[in-house]
Design a protein around this nucleic acid. Structure first.
Length: 743
DNA sequence: CGCCTGGTTCGACCT
DNA sequence: GAACCAGGCG
């Protein structure tokens, strides 16, 4: 037993040794939560609980994998039998087993956000609604919000509150769209992300035998990052725990940052009501950060009203004060950060891995990346456009999805004319309309196209149907990798890419190869019990951006959003873009709840740092291609100034920024300048010249995408693209205002 | 049908 | 700046 509790403090030990009954662990930032969780699971198994009776729900699949490895180190191979993963991946797996009970087949597709939005767009169009009012994003958010609260479309349509609300926003048709969306998804044998949880609830609600089976299987439940579960997720675990009440939740209300997708702090607050015998343990000692960082974080989060009483402390050293950089522009901010990282590496013999740069939005990475590249500092970006979102990858995946599931309408739309085989939108619409009107399955219409539709494109469609039949046939005889290779080749996708000799085309080709490699690995991995194509597709659809492995052995600075940084720690952390309307974001300003969530987000960012923390903001920044003036974030003023460099005794942090750094970082002069000599043609219409200033010099001309030349101008610190010139047509000049001048 | 292009719009964060 | 769309033309 000593093995499990060696070196733990009292509350940690208590959390590990507690075995039966409900327990809630409130784990402050850096309080050794992962260690407690792993040791607790190891202890359960060590005291006789079979590994397959344990279900551990984590926030990312990567976190699950790492935890499994750590448990394996303690108890060995048995750890393989623990069910571990995200809510979505675990319950998708269960739904595959039980699909027939809820009107699906086990090869159901998982719609990603793009698929969902595309489906909504077609419904809005079919119903002749105004797509300015019924924007796909808005509608999807509304539907998603309902599903996360377990409101079906029937309930939605019958609920006067929703109807009232939608009418107030002049979107009365949302309930109808929800209904059609859902019917269409079922017809396509497809579930979106929210359906995975929603349908699990339905399964457990309507099929007591199934529920019982999983209750008996999962005798011990552990839920990590409990503060970020939504109602739908919570009800699933509550149902599962109903038989044994062995439920352990771990979370920190101060780190709840996913309210926007339905996470509900009430889950933590209500937990005690649902489990009166609940034992609550608080882990308040921080092992990660310096006193300065812990206290600064506390001083910030104290401004929030809605929170559980907690006193996070540390016995670590005081450490450095928190640095604050003020930059003139986002580009300069990048330079300061790059320069600072360079210096820190030199002074303290650190590697790139010791640094992380965190930002509020993915778009902010651009200026930072540029600066790091110029400074020759290797970096990696977590998140952003993921591998699986790339066009060529989605193309092949759509083929695979359609091969496995002929009902998958969104996949069909993507591939039916890819590569071009002369099936245009008109034809596609005709086929879809035929299927809807005669209430036939899509595949029935496509595979017997001449029976239903006449016209030129029928030959092309018949050819397409042959192709798909061939793929389907292959999938029954070959393994997932062989099938996918065949599909890539015979569909013509690979050939298209191969013939594209541009740099872009080359990398696309490589990406497809990489996807095939991934499938090969999946097939060869002995830990995977199911190796068919749909198992692979399921895994791929639910891969988190944080899951993407990228390991060429080189040390790199990590760039990511704060959301993606949850659960991670770095010796030195830079939080950039601390400007009002960016962080906190514009939209959060009007609502106190949202403002408090932004504050928690900043709290998460600060508490990622072990030794040194640097905050920065710019006084101007690009947005939608134009310059925006920025004010320092209110959050900077909320940190107790005693913990900020040069902050003694003053109240306004932003006024005593360390500016010594700025002097060394004047923008460098580049490229020979020449006077701007272009004469605007009669067609010249200056649409936006806000960034165009007197005295600007033309820096260089650029051949951009296609046939367009860009004329760029700059003076000392402003840079602007002021015109595009169409090749061949002398001087059709349009005016734009941009800051970017490189490349 | 398919390509080109000019116009328009954009509420971040993630499964 | 990028993604998406409508409209025009070969």
């Amino acid at each position: 037993m000593d093995d499990y509790i060696k070196g733990l403090n009292d509350p940690q030990r208590e959390a590990v040794l507690h075995k039966d009954g409900p327990i809630m662990i409130i784990a402050g930032a850096g309080s050794g939560k992962t260690r407690v969780l792993t040791n607790r699971i190891a202890h359960l198994i060590g005291t006789g609980v079979p590994a397959y009776n344990i279900l551990a729900l984590t926030f990312t699949n990567k976190a699950a994998g790492e935890m499994r490895l750590r448990i394996e180190k303690i108890i060995g191979d048995k750890a393989k039998d623990i069910w571990m993963g995200t809510f979505h991946s675990v319950f998708a797996k269960i739904l595959r087993f039980e699909a027939d009970k809820i009107g699906y087949t086990s090869s159901f597709s998982i719609y990603d956000t793009d698929d969902s939005k595309s489906l909504i767009r077609s419904i809005v169009k079919e119903r002749n609604l105004d797509d300015k009012v019924y924007k796909a994003n808005v509608v999807l958010n509304r539907i998603s919000g309902a599903k996360n609260r377990l409101i079906s479309y029937r309930e939605y349509l019958n609920n006067p509150i929703y109807a009232e609300d939608d009418r107030a926003y002049r979107r009365p048709e949302i309930g109808r769209i929800y209904k059609i969306y859902q019917e269409r998804a079922i017809k396509s044998n497809a579930m979106d992300f929210d359906d995975l949880l929603f349908n699990t609830n339905i399964l457990f609600r309507d099929h007591p035998a199934a529920l019982q089976k999983y209750q008996q299987k999962f005798k011990y439940l552990l839920i990590d990052e409990f503060q970020d579960t939504n109602l739908s997720q919570y009800l699933i675990v509550r149902r599962l725990a109903a038989a044994h009440h062995n439920i352990c939740v771990v979370g920190d209300d101060a780190q709840s940052i996913y309210a926007f997708r339905g996470a509900d702090i009430q889950n933590i607050l209500n937990f005690e009501k649902d489990y009166p015998t609940l034992q609550t343990i608080r882990l308040e000692q921080n092992y990660r950060s310096t006193k300065t960082i812990v206290k600064a974080a506390n001083s910030l989060i104290a401004k929030n009203k809605a929170q559980l009483q907690k006193d996070v402390w540390t016995s670590n050293e005081d450490g450095n004060l928190i640095r604050l950089f003020k930059a003139m522009s986002d580009n300069e901010e990048g330079k300061m950060v790059a320069q600072s990282i360079f210096e820190e590496k030199m002074q303290h013999q650190l590697g790139n891995n010791d640094f992380a740069i965190l930002y509020r939005t993915n778009a902010q990475s651009r200026s930072i990346e540029e600066a790091l590249r110029k400074a020759n500092i290797k970096y990696k970006i977590i998140g952003g456009l993921s591998f699986y979102q790339r066009r060529e990858i989605k193309d092949l995946i759509s083929y695979l999805r359609y091969t496995v599931n002929h009902k998958d309408e969104e996949a069909l739309k993507r591939i039916i004319n890819l590569p071009k085989r002369g099936i245009g939108n008109t034809t596609l619409q005709k086929v879809l309309a035929t299927a809807y009107e005669s209430e036939l399955p899509l595949w029935e219409v496509i595979s017997n196209i001449r029976k239903y539709v006449t016209g030129r494109a029928t030959t092309a469609i018949a050819g397409f149907a042959e192709l798909i039949k061939k793929f389907e046939d292959a999938s029954t005889k070959l393994d997932a990798f062989e099938t996918a290779s065949l599909v890539a080749k015979e569909s013509g996708l690979l050939k298209d890419l191969y013939e594209d000799k541009t740099i872009e085309g080359l990398s696309r080709y490589e990406n497809v190869q990489e996807l095939l490699n991934a499938i090969k690995e999946f097939v060869d991995n002995p830990d995977n019990q199911e190796k068919d194509l749909s198992a692979f597709l399921q895994e791929v659809s639910l891969a988190t951006s944080a899951d993407e492995a990228e390991d060429d052995g080189e040390e790199k600075v990590t760039l990511m959003t704060i959301h993606a940084a949850k659960g991670l720690e770095f010796q030195q952390v830079y939080v950039v873009g601390l400007e009002e309307e960016l962080f906190p974001s514009q939209m959060a300003l009007s609502s106190r709840n949202e403002l408090e969530e932004e504050r928690r987000l900043f709290y998460v960012a600060i508490t990622r740092a072990e030794k040194k923390l640097t905050l920065s903001f710019a006084t101007s920044r690009y947005q939608y291609g134009r310059i925006k003036n920025c004010e320092p974030s209110r959050f900077l003023k909320e940190i107790d100034p005693r913990f900020l460099e040069q902050g003694q005794g003053k109240t306004n942090a932003a006024n005593h920024v360390n500016t010594s750094f700025v002097k060394n970082l004047r923008p460098q002069r580049s490229a020979p300048a020449q006077n701007f000599t272009h004469k605007p043609s009669p067609n010249f219409k200056p649409s936006d010249t806000r960034n165009l200033q007197a005295g600007m010099k033309v820096e260089h001309l650029k051949f951009g995408l296609g046939m367009v030349k860009a004329v760029k101008a700059h003076n000392n610190d402003r840079k602007a693209v002021i015109a595009f010139e169409k090749a061949g047509e002398k001087t059709l000049l349009l005016s734009f205002a941009k800051l970017k001048i490189h490349e």
